[in-house]
Design a protein around this nucleic acid. Structure first.
Lengths: 209, 209
DNA sequence: GCTTCTTGTAGGGATAGCCCTACAGGGTTG
DNA sequence: CAACCCTGTAGGGCTATCCCTACAAGAAGC
């Protein structure tokens, strides 16, 4: 029996996914969480083989939760479930240590299969996405500017685009606001932008928002 | 038996919702669609009492599909299911003729209840949202929020959206920066936004940029 | 005609954020 | 392996911006 923990902020979607997993006789949902903090807390007293993780959760988002999950002893495999099927995002998730990346567009049967695969220590990437990843990320030409951003810079970028201010970001990431300002300045230089307005525009045009 | 059609673009979410509805013995999913065109096509040969509609679908989006569903003879009731619990969006959906508006954050039991309610000819609005609607939106409005801006406010708005900072605007308009700040605060209140990021987003979504 | 709302203007004081600078660790490269 | 660049971190000090408040002129309601 494979034990699964579902981390996803939208209740309806979470319940739906639980139902879906319930259909498979070899899978069992043993817990759930609607944000990163809750997830880590739950993992402290619930054993499972797989965490099904939505990247776009409020507060400590899914991506950032990954290394913290893997820091536990005997950590579960992490299967990321994402809305936006950005190749960029998938690459980041895998780099952070996720065992797989599925999108909410894919076939439910594939999801169940993916859970089994990562539970067995394997890896899974949505086939459509894998395709695009070798195209967009693999070929060295014409990569978007935001591909040049470092991990930290990208986290700061995302939050700024969402309207989070420097101080709040500093709190979320447990850093000094000075540090956030530095990251902000550096990422803006990399993206050749001069104002927050342009940053948001950039994010929208590149469908990062 | 209440027959339901599920229109939602993300397959996993759609399947999850189908499972969820399957739990209720008085509800039956008789069809599904992953975009607006498919939805209208399906409705042409499938009878149902309720359409569960995701507004953020690609192509003909959910909102635009509403009047076209209601133009059918003997049209089903439409229950909108939304990710973002925007009061503004809910107001528009209801204006277009939806019978209800639920968010994916809400309790699954409420969703089932909402389906029954609209099937019986009633209306349903997510309680949290209803609260905010009476506060934020004067249900009657159809014209865009930015129509409420005064002349000065609009000039300031445009410049802010273009990335001009408060001081520069003050110079351009030969006013004190304090005055610009005041206009900014007032216009942001009118547009129900809390950050410059949202301001830019608003401008882009309304093609003002 | 008196009150209330909206708009344009701006000050005082507090805070957020920017600019410049710094330093350490890791990677790269000549 | 030394020099350099990139990244993550942050302090000091200055400026931009916000929040609250105020007031006058016109519009609007009653």
């Amino acid at each position: 029996m494979i034990r699964v923990l579902v981390a996803e902020d939208h209740t309806i979607v979470r319940e739906g996914i639980k139902q879906l997993i319930g259909l498979a006789k070899d899978l069992l949902v043993v817990g759930e969480a609607s944000n990163g903090e809750q997830l880590l807390e739950t993992l402290r007293h619930v054993q499972c083989e797989v965490v099904l993780l939505d990247i776009s959760m409020p507060g400590v988002n899914g991506l950032e939760a990954i290394p913290r999950i893997r820091a536990l002893n005997n950590p579960p495999a992490i299967l990321v479930l994402s809305m936006h099927d950005e190749a960029q995002m998938a690459a980041r998730a895998l780099k952070f240590g996720a065992a797989g990346y599925a999108t909410k567009d894919s076939d439910p049967a594939l999801l169940l299969m993916a859970i089994r695969k990562v539970a067995a220590g394997g890896r899974y990437i949505d086939p459509d996405l894998a395709d695009r990843m070798v195209f967009e990320v693999g070929l060295t030409d014409e990569r978007p500017l935001h591909a040049l951003l470092s991990e930290r810079e990208f986290s700061v970028f995302e939050r700024l685009a969402q309207g989070v201010n420097v101080n709040e970001i500093a709190q979320q990431l447990a850093l000094s606001s000075k540090t956030i300002s530095t990251h902000k300045a550096r990422l803006m230089q990399k993206l050749h932008i001069n104002s927050l307005a342009e940053l948001v525009k950039y994010a929208m045009e590149h469908k990062l928002l």
